[in-house]
Design a protein around this nucleic acid. Sequence first.
DNA 1: GAACTAGACTAACAATTGTTAGTTTGTTCA
DNA 2: TGAACAAACTAACAATTGTTAGTCTAGTTC
Lengths: 189, 189
Amino acid sequence: MKQETRKQEIIRIAAKLFKEKGYSAVTMRDLAKAMGIKAASLYNHINSKQDILKTIIISLAEEFTEGMKLIQTSDENCIDKLKSIIELHVRISSQNIYGMASLNNDWMHLEEKLEYYQKLRIDYENDFRNILKEGIVSGEIVNVKPDVMMFSILTTLRSLYIWIPKKEDLNLEELSSTLSKILITGINK
Amino acid sequence: MKQETRKQEIIRIAAKLFKEKGYSAVTMRDLAKAMGIKAASLYNHINSKQDILKTIIISLAEEFTEGMKLIQTSDENCIDKLKSIIELHVRISSQNIYGMASLNNDWMHLEEKLEYYQKLRIDYENDFRNILKEGIVSGEIVNVKPDVMMFSILTTLRSLYIWIPKKEDLNLEELSSTLSKILITGINK
DNA sequence: GAACTAGACTAACAATTGTTAGTTTGTTCA
DNA sequence: TGAACAAACTAACAATTGTTAGTCTAGTTC
C-alpha cells in the first residue's frame, strides 16, 4: 500500500469540499482549515486552486476514456458492452465519490484544460451512442431514439456519486447487476 | 400575456447565468452587466443575491410538490402515475431550463430556506418511492429494489434540463412517451 | 406645474479572495 | 555536527466581493 503524499492528501480533501459546496464556493482558507494548516502552506504542495481542480477532473475523465476504449474494442455483444459500461461507472464512481462531483458539476471552471475535457466527453458519448446503434442494427436493442436512450442511461450512471454514499449495505456487484436489469429490461412486469 | 416586471427579468437572467457557471461563480457585477446596468441598480429591484436564488429554487420545488400531490391522489394505476410524473418533469423542465440547473446544483447555497427545501425534496422522493412500492404489491412493477428504481428514473428526470436545450426538434409529448417507454419497459428487445 | 415614481447612476465600505515573499521549525542523512 | 529538505508559519498584496447611501433623470398622475 503506497503512502499518500501530502499533495495527494490535499487533493483528496479538496475534492470532498468541492462536492459539498462546489469549486467556486470553497476558498483556499476553507481547504487549509480542513487540512489543519494555514492557507499559504498549501502552496508548498500545489501550484494553484485551478491546478487542484484540473488534477481531479482530468484524471477521472481519462480513466473513463480508457475504460470505454477497452469495452469498445472487446468482442462482446452490445448488451454485454452496456453491462460493462455500467460496471465501469459503478467501479470508478464508488472509488471516487468526491471527485465525481467535480467531474459532473465543476468542469466548466476548468481553464486551459477545458477544451481537452470537452473533447474526451464528446468522444465518450459518441462511443456510447455507437454501441447502442450497433445494438439496434443487430436487433439486440429496441429501435427507439438512441439519443434518448443514451441520455437516460448515462445521466443515471453519472449521478451514481450522489446516491452511492447513502447506501450503507453497498455490494458493488449487486448494484451493477440491479442497475443493468433496470436500465436494460425496464421496471415493467 | 402579462408583462414581465424588472424584478422577474433580473431573476430570469440570473438563472441563466447560474446555469452556466453556478451560483457562487456569478457576481452581482456579472448579473448587472448581463442586464446592461450597474450592480448597485439591481438593488432597486431585489433584496440580495441570496434572495434571487431562493426565489428560483423554492418556486420550482413547490411546483413539483403540487404536481406530485395531484398525481398521488389520482385514481390512476401505478404505471400511469409514473407516466404522469415523467410528463410533470418534462413540462416543468422545458419551461424552466435555467432554473432547473439551480434547483439541481445550487440548493446547498440556500440559507434560511435550506431546511424547507430539503423537506420538500425528501417528501417528494418518499411519494415517488411509495408509488413504486404500490406497483410492486399490485404486480404492475418488477420486484427489484425500489430505491434503485427510483434513483435511476429520478436522476434521469432531474437531468432533463441539461439535455432538452440540445434538441432542436423538440416535441414535448413525443419526448415524454419515448422516455416512458425507455424508463418503464427498458431498451432490450 | 407640482408631486410622485421607477429606475438608473457614482462613490464608497468592509470583508474576503488567491497568491507571494520571506522566515522558522523539525527531521533525515552524510 | 552540519547540510539539506519538507513543511509549516507570519505578513502582506492587489483584486474582487455583496451591499449601502445618496443623487439624478425621465416619465406619469393629480
